[in-house]
Design a protein around this nucleic acid. Structure first.
Lengths: 242, 242
DNA sequence: AGATAGCTTTGATGCAAATCAAACAATTGT
DNA sequence: ACAATTGTTTGATTTGCATCAAAGCTATCT
């Protein structure tokens, strides 16, 4: 790799990464950690709006997000887009590519981002050597399957208010796990992208935000959201609990 | 395992199973195949309507369907059910349990069925030994992720007719891959279960079937469906192609 | 600072699918 | 063979969200 030509790519050590607990298994000794560093080949910077990978592109690597924020989406031939997920630091994307050796979705950076490139051949080789890494990879894939199951529940069974409540609670919970506030967040995506993810139109997303705001459940100012009554949101999401 | 007490469970060899190409990787020699047989601990019979596993139950094994038909579903606390998939012979279920060591969905047999019980510890151990099995397991999980992505597209973006067309085409394609007709099928699930999977009510499913029938695209008689104009179905599913 | 483009909000109207309702098969049990 | 149960079809009505439309806000560029 020629760094003069590809200044955006460079090597980095997992063993010294502060996201280690998030994207790497725990329970390694120092020597193992050094070996584990081999899973990451390079680091890559993606500017806001740029694609990390696209549907149809050959699959070579998984990507661990170091900093930044992504959306993944699939499209129909007639141009309809479905956002399939929003991913933040410590999360892994690219799993869709394994089955057919080519990606089936697009990954777009919603802010300037930084990812660790993990060639899948490395992941598989080291997984055979380290059962704890193997288990970790399996858990990441299973977690994605379970997440998509709950999105199916959202899309198939829930009304607009429930969907948006679930969305906000999920986002803030993941941000909180990363040391951010559990009541305030800045949305990285547009109303249209939220709507695409939740199976509703951008106008409905906007109206539902306004409704929550009128009801005193949240404060909204464009991309900034403060959750004033988290319990009210939880009740909307999970109506039986009342 | 006491066969007198558990007559429904007994050992079976993958190496002699006629679904081998579907649930096992290819490219093994005979000796490897013998080792690979160890992945399956037992076989288990599930009667129509019975549960293979339920949400909350400890995760121990994956299940390869030998014969029969399953649905998987998740539920909200207030009793709403979302069918997350229909699975047939040669397909693997239980992947949802890996992430938290307990299942997060229910698997119900829609007809008398027969599954190979593959303790996940065996799967992981043999995966470390056989890269081709490791790759196979990864592909199965990735395939499930990609499938769920397309269900999200269905639920988020498509109208009732498109959803049902996609559903029928997908079912018949999978049945055809198993040697069945590419134009006739017998539905193993109720209108309500189809509706739950596709995010619509049973009445809408029924009406859409009737509509397709009136338009001469399919013949329907209760659970029996014959696809008269596959191209018309494809066009409904994929409107741009015309 | 002003202009342009992109995003968001809010209102008015329309429609696809949900809901409510009832009759009609098909299947299961006695 | 009959009753009871479960599943399916079809019709009438309602409704939640989409669509259409227009104005307001923010950010970016010159």
């Amino acid at each position: 790799m020629n760094l003069a030509i590809h200044p955006e790519t460079f090597k980095v050590a997992c063993s010294s990464c502060n996201l280690r607990e998030l994207c790497m298994p725990i329970g390694f000794n120092l020597d193992d950690m050094k070996r584990l560093d081999e899973v990451v080949a390079t680091r890559r910077r993606i500017k806001q709006g740029d694609l990390l990978f696209t549907s149809g592109e050959p699959f070579t690597s998984l990507y661990a997000i170091r900093t930044g924020f992504f959306k993944t989406s699939v499209s129909t031939d007639d141009g309809r887009e479905q956002v399939t997920g929003f991913q933040m630091a410590g999360e892994v994307i690219g799993l869709d590519g394994i089955v057919s050796d080519s990606h089936s979705c697009n990954a777009v950076a919603l802010e300037d981002s930084d990812v660790c490139v993990m060639p899948f051949a490395n992941v598989e080789e080291l997984s055979r050597e380290f059962p704890v890494l193997q288990r970790h990879v399996h858990k990441i894939m299973s977690r994605e399957i379970v997440r998509e199951n709950s999105v199916m529940m959202l899309l198939g069974n829930m009304r607009a208010e429930e969907r948006l409540a679930a969305f906000l609670l999920n986002l803030v919970q993941r941000l909180h796990a990363r040391g951010f506030s559990q009541s305030e967040l800045v949305l990285r995506m547009t109303r249209e992208e939220i709507g695409s993810y939740l199976g509703m139109k951008l106008e409905t997303v906007s109206r539902t935000f306004s409704k929550f705001s009128e009801d005193g459940i949240i404060d909204v100012k464009q991309r900034y959201v403060r959750i004033v009554q988290p319990d009210a949101l939880k009740q909307i999401f999970n109506p039986e609990t009342c």
